[in-house]
Amino acid sequence: MSATAPSEGFGLRGSTLTLIGIALVGLYLFPVYWMYISAFKTSSEIFADPPTMFPENGTLSSFVWIFTQEHVGRYLRNSLIIAVSTMALTIVLGSLGAYAMSRIRSRAVDVALVTVVVLQTFPEALLATPMFVIFRELGLLNTHLAVVLATTTKTLGFALVFLRPIFAQVPFALEEAAFIDGASRLQSFRLVVFPMVRVGVLVVAALTFVMAYGEFVYPLTLLTRAELQPAPVGIYQFVGAEYADWHRVMAFASVFVTPVLLIFLLLQRRIVSGLTSGALK
């Protein structure tokens, strides 16, 4: 725990921890490594016995195929549009709701929480048909908006459940002080509360982004036109009736995951700096 070693200089203990850390991450992410190298293997090598740790007859053909297909860029762009919009909508609704839940003292909050938690438990595969009906009535089929609205039902529950305790940690006293100074509820939310919870909000936002980025069922159902489809639907195009092009699946998945993973790693730094700036001190 960080508190056991206030962080001056890393020294031997730091190096040991780093080494163990690397080993842990390496072991844990082995399947991810497997994904990357499988993209370079031929399909019979994928099933070779014994398994090969490194492609023996490495081929770039899957990646060449991916990058010479204009569709891949289109799939990724669609994923990005859907993920960013879903994240924005979720965070706005989720923050407001979580703030209210942490401030209202009433049974209604319990009812609201149960409602939200329960409503997100149906597997999407079963929700997809009625969702289709809703969005057809709204005239939104074949729009990204429909997918964003539908996907937000998956992410909003998560955001509320997780943001509520974060908002609850902001002491009432701080807000009281702001009110005495004449601040309105909105001002207090914006100027006092939000800066104190932004780390938590950032984490929730990032996770919401990833959830929406990987969404499969709703786009498949609500978008019938290929040019609107996001990448997770695109990945399925290689899984055919009688066989799957696994090396292409893996190549596409690598291209799909890597940029987001990199962005996420950069974002980690933001989270760290948010912490060290002493938001909660």
Partner: peptide, 28 residues
Amino acid sequence: YEAANTFMAGNAAMAISGPWELPRIEQE
């Protein structure tokens, strides 16, 4: 296709499968 894959990778001496595998078997 997984049964056919084990055949193509040399992990099975025989495999029951259909003609849709021919393009792949030829290649692999």
